[in-house]
Amino acid sequence: MGQFENKLAQMGITLPEAPAPAGNYVPYVQVGDILYVSGQISKGDDGLIVGKLGDDMQTSAGAEAAKICAVALLAQVKAACGGDLDRLQRVVKLTGFVNSTADYTEQPQVINGASDFLGEALGEAGKHSRSAVSAAALPFGVAVEIDGIFQIK
C-alpha cells in the first residue's frame, strides 16, 4: 500500500472498486500525463444520495455527498493508474454540480466537502482549482456530481 492509500486508511477510508459508467461513455481518458475523470455521482454504501439543496437537504449533508464523489474520483484515478494511486501527482481541477433550488447560494460550501477531503488525504497534491455550480437537476436525482482533471506519472 502506497503513501496516499496509507493516509486514506488512517482517515478510515478504503477506496471502492471504480464505478462502471452508467451510459455510453468511458470512466476516464488519459492524454499524456493528464487524466480526465468522468462525473462521479453521490452514491454511498446505502445507495444513491438524493436530494435538492435548499429544499430537502442541508449544506452539511451536501458536503458529505461531495466527499463521497471525491472518494469515487480517487477510485477511478487508482484504476487508471493500474492500481497504484501513488502515480497521482496532482489534482488539477474539479467541477462540482449541486442539485439545488434557484435561490440556494451555498454551492461552494457543498463542494468544499470534496476539496477539504482531497486536501487532507493528498496534502499538496490535493490542492486544485475548481468550479462549484448549481444544477436544476442531476441524474437519478442525486445531490452532487463532480468530475475531475488529474496529473499522473
Rank of each mutant, 00 (worst) to 15 (best):
I149G: 01
Q89T: 06
F97R: 13
A63N: 00
A65C: 10
L35I: 08
Y104F: 15
G119M: 00
G148V: 11
V144E: 02
N112T: 09
A72R: 15
A70Q: 02
F140Y: 13
A22R: 12
T105A: 13
G54N: 05
N24A: 14
A9F: 10
G51Y: 07
A18L: 08
K127N: 12
V29S: 13
V31W: 04
A22L: 13
V77A: 03
V77D: 06
L94T: 05
Q10V: 03
V77M: 09
R130T: 00
A22E: 13
V29E: 15
S100M: 12
Q3H: 14
Q10P: 03
A66N: 03
V133E: 15
C69R: 07
I152G: 06
G82H: 09
N24Q: 15
S134I: 07
S38Y: 06
K153G: 07
A137L: 10
Q89M: 09
Y25S: 10
K67Q: 01
S129W: 05
I34S: 05
M1L: 07
T59N: 03
S60F: 02
A66E: 02
G12Y: 06
F4C: 01
R90N: 12
Y28V: 00
K93P: 00
G123D: 12
D147V: 02
P19N: 06
A75E: 08
Q10H: 07
T101F: 11
L48A: 12
V144S: 02
V29R: 15
V50F: 02
A70D: 08
Y25H: 14
L15R: 07
V91L: 09
I13D: 02
S115D: 01
S60G: 04
D147T: 09
K67W: 00
A66Q: 02
E64H: 07
I152Y: 06
L74I: 06
G51Q: 05
D56L: 08
Q76I: 04
D147M: 04
V77E: 07
V91F: 01
L53Y: 04
A102S: 14
A80C: 04
G12S: 07
A143L: 04
V133K: 15
V31P: 00
A125P: 11
G44V: 01
F97L: 12
Q151I: 01
K127E: 10
L122I: 05
A137R: 12
D56C: 10
V26P: 01
L122T: 09
V26F: 07
I149L: 12
V71L: 08
P139Q: 11
G32C: 08
K127V: 14
D116L: 00
G123E: 11
K67I: 00
S60R: 08
E5F: 03
G54C: 05
V133Q: 15
G39L: 08
K93L: 01
K43E: 08
L53P: 05
C69G: 10
C69D: 09
A18N: 07
